[in-house]
Nucleic acid binder design. Structure first.
Length: 236
DNA sequence: GCGACAG
DNA sequence: ATCTTGTCGC
């Protein structure tokens, strides 16, 4: 349902050097604004998007899942494909960005906010995968990776809901937050059309404490693994 | 000064 | 990301 801004077209690339230029240019288009987690203006449909790979890395499946306010799946899609290039620090969007966009565009129901398995503005050039996707689609996106990009100041306390705003290297653009008591935290940062406070509140609103990441993201991850196993089933 | 650093 | 064995918890 969402579609790429025609004026930006696909900002894809082949060389890392050109990729840096694209990231700096798109980073200027990132919008950090409040997006209430509760109330009349709060998102009522949230999506999670993730990409899974075959063990040889030659095949990939981009999955998007949309949930309603009761965390019930109302739409989901699987887009098989091939990763554009290998992984390299800071260039994740050029590896799985295109497939990620294709999955979101293939949805029948348009989500009001998207949770992405990658950083947002907490990126060396201010444009992690979540921001890249958010700017091209011009929809609210929140970055929720499971490991920090750079050294993290400190970890949040153990209970769900505890968080610590990162200051080292990144000012107050990101935070480490515990979505499930007793498990490692995730590192949230605004992707596009949300600010950090909103991103934190939305992560809590769309997670239940049963998983380490927001439910839509968990569902997308599970779906990508299922899609992969249908092609290359577990041997043992 | 150099290296490490999302998936 | 993916592979891998065992273990803990609901």
């Amino acid at each position: 349902m969402p579609s790429v801004r025609p004026d930006l077209a696909h900002e894809w690339v082949v060389s890392a050097e050109e990729g840096h230029v694209i990231q700096r240019r798109l980073a200027e288009k990132v919008v950090l604004a409040p997006l209430p987690a509760e109330g009349a203006d709060a998102p009522r449909l949230a999506a999670g998007v993730d990409v899974g790979y075959s063990k040889d890395g030659h095949r990939a499946w981009a999955c998007a899942v949309v949930m309603d306010e009761a965390m019930r799946i109302v739409d989901r899609v699987v887009v098989p494909g091939v990763p554009d290039r290998g992984y390299s620090t800071g260039m994740l969007a050029f590896r799985e960005g295109r497939l990620t966009l294709e999955a979101l565009e293939a949805l029948t129901i348009e989500p009001h906010v998207v949770f992405c398995d990658g950083h947002g503005v907490v990126h060396e050039r201010g444009l992690g995968l979540a921001s890249h996707v958010g700017v091209l689609l011009d929809i609210p996106v929140i970055g929720v990776p499971k490991t920090p990009f750079h050294a993290v100041d400190r970890l949040p306390d153990k209970p769900r809901g505890s968080y610590f705003v990162l200051t080292k290297e990144w000012g107050a653009q990101g935070a480490s937050i515990r979505l499930r008591t007793g498990t490692k935290p995730v590192y949230v940062s605004p992707g596009h059309r949300v600010d950090l406070d909103s991103a934190i509140a939305l992560c809590l609103r769309w997670s239940t404490g049963r998983h380490r990441v927001p439910e839509p993201l968990q569902a997308a991850d599970t779906l990508s693994k299922r899609a992969r196993n249908e092609v290359s089933p577990p041997v043992p």
